[in-house]
Each structure stands twice: as C-alpha cells, then as structure tokens.
C-alpha cells in the first residue's frame, strides 16, 4: 500500500471541498473494496477522505411509496430493514447473497455502486489491463475468463461488474443522487455504470469530485421479487450468473416484469429485451424461455465463459418460474 494522508470529513460540505481541491483523492466508505485495492497497489490515492461518519445513513419512506437509502447505509442494515424486506425482497436477498456477514457489516450502499471488477488480470499488476492501465492491452482475452462478461463487452475489456446489490437496483429503476460543490444531480442506476467500449477505465458517470449521497427506489411495481445467485460454492463467492426479477401476473398474463442480470456484463445488466418479450405474454415457461433467448441473443463469449450464456438463460427461466410458483403458493 502506498503512503497517503487521511482526512476525516466532519460534514458533506467539507468532504466535497476536499475532493474538489485534492488532485488524487478518494472517498473511503466501508473500505471493503478500496482498502483491498490499495493494498494490491491498484488504487493509489494520495489523500483518503473518510466519509464513513457523514449523516447519510437513513432509510426513509418517500411520498408515493418509494424509499430513499442513504449512501452510507451499510449492507447489513439495508438487508434487514423492514421497508426493504417487505417492499423490495429482491434488494434484501441480493445483499444477503453477497460477500460475508462481516463484509456486509462494513460495506456501504455507495461503495457497492463503485465496486470494481474481480477480473483476475485487473488484479494482477504483471498482466496487461486496459482498465488499470489504459492502452496496455487485455490479458484476459485468451486467458481465464470464467468470471468475465458475455454481454456489453468490448475488444478492450471483458470484465464483469461484481456487485449483487446493483443488479437488484438496476431491475427496480433506482436513481442515484450525487453531489459536488457544483450542485446535485440524479443519475438513473442503469446509466450510472458505463460499458467499456474503448475506454474501460471510465467505469461510471460519476465525476471525480462527486459524491454519491443516496439511492432512491420508486414504489415497487410488485412486491413479488427475488434474487437468484449462482456461484462456485454455496456461499461467499462472486456470482457466475445472478438474476434479479420482479413479476406481476394477472389472469395468467404477465402485467409487469423487471429483470436484471449480474455476473455477465461490465455493468449491472437491465434485461430490457427480456422484459419486452414478457410484458403481455402468457405467464408460462415457454414465455420465460423466449424472454431469456431474446436477452442473450447478442451475447458473445470466450472459451472460459461460454457456459454463462446457457446458464443465464436457465437461471432467468428458473427465477421467473419460482416467482410464478410463489404466487400460486401464496
């Protein structure tokens, strides 16, 4: 880890001023990703601005049935919150499916949005990585790609976004509120993360001087939602494929569907194609399969992650089927 100076921000204003004036500063929230990356010499800030004590820890009901989640709400608090558990089960499940209880007690919502890829070559200083060192190439191409993306990837980068929470947030039309000394703006979660294209090092829409202050969830279209995570061990592993889904069915017809995928793309992947196929379709396994096919039609793969295309299809179908069965059981 490189030497840095540490500043504890007493309030949001100071935090924003510090980040605006220090050329190479980073906000520190829960530290679960940043400290790891600093120790690996991948993140090398000169100044670390500790924002963990800022009063951004509320979970508040909004008029109209939505919820506003402070950026520094810790993962465990989010997962356990009654509003979240009852209205957005998919969010609670996504959080509980990620990392370990210890890490969830540390990690924050804002930090989760900015979590960086687990690409083995991104983590390895001796390997080429366009994300870590723009223009150096991509050692992942032709390498181990089991945890890499099959949707939205480019010739410059095939890394996948590792977050579970973001997948649920993407499915639910969340919006991110960000603040800087220049003011406040809102970014839809689905536009918060960038696809790599030829600039994989530009990962989000967040400007270097901006701070994520909260995430807002609109009123749920249905409380029937679920997160299914498929991984290499039963717990404490990143997703190979994950599916966040919400499904509303009336008279055996899909009247609302929200679907997003994790582990398969450089960003939390809102499955708009699948949603389009589902809406108004009969709530049957055939429809679910067509929806999955449609979403994965544009997928491209490497030797090591080819299986993800089929796995994603199957996991989509299984998750929707489970939601349907839940309904009949209820």
């Amino acid at each position: 880890m490189r030497t840095f100076s540490y500043v504890r921000a007493p309030d949001v204003e100071t935090a924003l001023r510090t980040i605006a004036t220090e050329p190479n500063a980073k906000f520190l929230g829960g530290g679960t990703n940043l400290v790891d990356l600093m120790r690996e010499n991948i993140e090398r800030p000169d100044v670390v601005v500790d924002i963990s004590r800022l009063p951004l820890t509320g979970i508040d009901e909004l008029p109209g049935g939505g919820v506003r989640i402070g950026a520094l709400v810790r993962n465990s608090s989010l997962a356990a919150h009654p509003l979240v558990r009852t209205r957005y089960p998919v969010v609670s499940q996504a959080v509980l499916g990620g990392a370990s209880a210890q890490l969830r007690n540390m990690a924050t919502v804002g930090g989760n949005l900015l979590q960086r890829t687990r690409c083995l070559y991104f983590y390895d200083e001796a390997s080429a990585c366009n994300k870590r060192e723009p223009g150096s190439g991509c050692s992942a191409l032709g390498g181990f790609t089991r945890n890499h993306g099959v949707l939205g990837v480019s010739d410059h980068c095939i890394a996948a976004h590792p977050s579970d929470l973001c997948v649920a947030l993407a499915a639910l039309d969340a919006e991110v509120e960000v603040e800087s000394t220049r003011g406040t703006r809102r970014i839809p979660l689905t536009e918060f993360h960038h696809l790599p294209g030829s600039t994989p090092h530009v990962e989000t829409a967040l400007a270097p001087d901006e701070l994520v202050t909260s995430v807002e969830l609109p009123a749920p279209v249905t409380t029937r939602s679920r997160y299914r995570k498929v991984r290499d061990r039963a717990s404490y592993a990143f997703a190979l494929v994950s599916v966040a889904a919400a499904l509303e069915v009336r008279d055996d017809t899909v009247t609302a569907a929200r679907l997003a995928l994790g582990g398969v793309a450089p960003k939390p992947w809102r499955a708009t194609e699948a949603e389009r196929v589902l809406l108004g379709a009969p709530a049957t396994e055939e429809s679910f399969r067509s929806a999955a096919e449609a979403e994965l039609a544009s997928a491209t793969s490497q030797d090591g992650n080819d299986f993800k295309i089929e796995l994603a299809r199957r996991t989509i179908v299984a998750t929707l089927r489970d939601l349907l069965t839940d309904r009949s059981a209820a």
Binding site: G31, D36, V48, S76, S100
Partner: peptide, 23 residues
C-alpha cells in the same frame, strides 16, 4: 489480508467485521 477468510474477525461496537480491511 484481503477479506476472504475471516481469520481477522473482531467486533466493532458489537458487530463482527474483518479487521484486515479496516483502517
């Protein structure tokens, strides 16, 4: 030393955390 094993678990205000990822 990377939050992947839990051997460093301690309690902070009664809650378990990985002390290796805590400054």
């Amino acid at each position: 030393d990377q939050g992947a094993c839990g051997a460093c678990t301690v309690l902070a205000d009664g809650e378990r955390i990985n002390s290796c990822l805590a400054l």
